[in-house]
Design a protein around this nucleic acid. Sequence first.
DNA 1: CCTTTTCTTGGAAGGCCTGCCAAGGATCTC
DNA 2: GAGATCCTTGGCAGGCCTTCCAAGAAAAGG
Lengths: 351, 351
Amino acid sequence: MTPPRFGNNGATIQDVAAKAGVSKKTVSRVINGEDYVTEQTAQKVETAIAELGYVPNVSARRLASNRSYVLTLVYQAEEPPGWLTHVIQGIVQTSARHGYEVVIHPCEVEEQASQKSLQALVTRGGTDGLILLPPFGSKTAFNQRLFEGGMPMASIEPSDPDLPWPVATITNRQGAYDMTAYLLSLGHRRIGFILGPEDYSGSWERLDGFKAALEDAEVAFEKALVVAGDYTFESGLAQGRALLGAAILPTAIFASNDEMAAGVIQAAYELGLRVPDELSVVGFDDSALACRLSPPLTTIRQPTIELAARVTEALIQRINGEEAEDTRIEMTTSLVVRDSAATVTDSGLSM
Amino acid sequence: MTPPRFGNNGATIQDVAAKAGVSKKTVSRVINGEDYVTEQTAQKVETAIAELGYVPNVSARRLASNRSYVLTLVYQAEEPPGWLTHVIQGIVQTSARHGYEVVIHPCEVEEQASQKSLQALVTRGGTDGLILLPPFGSKTAFNQRLFEGGMPMASIEPSDPDLPWPVATITNRQGAYDMTAYLLSLGHRRIGFILGPEDYSGSWERLDGFKAALEDAEVAFEKALVVAGDYTFESGLAQGRALLGAAILPTAIFASNDEMAAGVIQAAYELGLRVPDELSVVGFDDSALACRLSPPLTTIRQPTIELAARVTEALIQRINGEEAEDTRIEMTTSLVVRDSAATVTDSGLSM
DNA sequence: CCTTTTCTTGGAAGGCCTGCCAAGGATCTC
DNA sequence: GAGATCCTTGGCAGGCCTTCCAAGAAAAGG
């Protein structure tokens, strides 16, 4: 009936204090790296800690300090972004350095339940900060309420372009511009574009970059070549089929993320179109998928781990009440040329 | 200087008790669903809780009960298994139902540091249970020590076949048998096999199933057709090249996971071999990657979410001191036929 | 009807740490 | 050299919940 115990049957702060011949409070100061402790006293305490193998009890610390030392990662359960594991890496690395743990909180979208569970997590003091992944980084009434209630939060690739909390994003527009310029340099003039979800601001930024590159190259923008996807493989497949079944065929398709690009490659495969000889296909994100496709996907790399690390840093600063240096982090993307795009050829044009 | 606060500025158990006209202890009983509370009293308490919007403070509960209500997921940081997000889903669902939160703990393998951080997590009472993903589910001295120290733990797809703690695995042998039988039914007789990491027991079980199917079909097992990979895409690519560059060509290649199968497909692509017309390629796991490849991969599905859910259930039972019903969970796999394997043809044989 | 068991509640005593305040000593200032 | 200022340490009072124990009420048993 009694629950089993583990750990902290060992030393407590009291034991360390006794061993070092100081007060609990002084030990506490040493542990937390506070000022006003003599080098000598600190030394004694450190020694005692080492000898006893003392590790502070998190629960007690949390209760006393009214902090949880927990950061919560909120993302979509069913369709997590392909870069989730990278994001986690960045967050955990940084969190660990500051003594924070990371709790994961996969949510159902549009779900009352997930709001309730998040609300509960927050009100019971279960977390010190929230990191929101798309599509949660938006100005919903719920988020607004959390923010105004003083909950530190941060977003990676937010849905809304301007949020009052720290935000980390990439140069979506420039990335799309670079990719489009690259395709143009290969001679492509009819380039299909598959848009991301309408409610992500990044989707529009990518479209924007695409348009800008066309304009700069004085290539006419054709509305018929732009179709709407939602960053899923399935939408890429469907829209790929649509683009390749239309009257005027594109010689290249720029899917605005890798998942959709994989869908396009599959659509091409179904139709017996060889990539890149007969159709160039490019993506965006440089997710794990990209180099596993055949042909390996030419795409835009985003420095996800570092992005996550930076935003975590900013969040922790905010938790500590420090004025965050950068409340809007923007990291630059880079073009990764692999094999899925090639110079436009006759066969491509004549199809 | 003072850290910001959020939440639990609201009601405490004391407030609820006052409002309901009972003692704190009685409220506690209601919250924890203990016996010996009248329906009527419980009702009063419930009402008070609802009206005050009371949520118990986790830190206090943790300190008092000497439990953390946290489960920790341990996995490899650099090369997380492709089914990680599914595992997380299963774990979180089940944990949430039991009031547990899930902390992620990506580790470096072979790293003193990760052991230290895990040890710290454990001794300071930061977690009630560990869920180990490969390659951590093994009989290392460190794990043994944790286990003997009374730390509840569980493994998914363990490296060692017999562990003293609960283990969840799939029918690796049967799955590989089924796949091989399927390939044989398509007429393949020279089937290449790419093995997983040597120190995973699952790798050998899969090889075992492969051999058994050959034997049952009275097809000679050729050692030269078995090569060693390590479940990474890169190893699949390398070994795919090796198999396809050898003197006697296989008509099909069975990569023992999807990542490696993707590598083989890429190797075939490089050589201009059409899959499945000239070479059949199959995988194992039915990871997200499988249906995104072109052609979509024929593979073996493992019910990852449910597997994770079941093992989490078992772990929580153990934490609660209940004798776990099943200490070894084995779930059955199923063949998923897509397009990457086809009947063996002349072209394949004559290559 | 009284004793024994079962149910239902309450009270006190912590869990281990940190925040706040105070106090003594050292250092500085003019 | 006396007062002001800083540094360094300690003590106490919680934080909010649970565990343990006790006690009264109700039910059961003889």
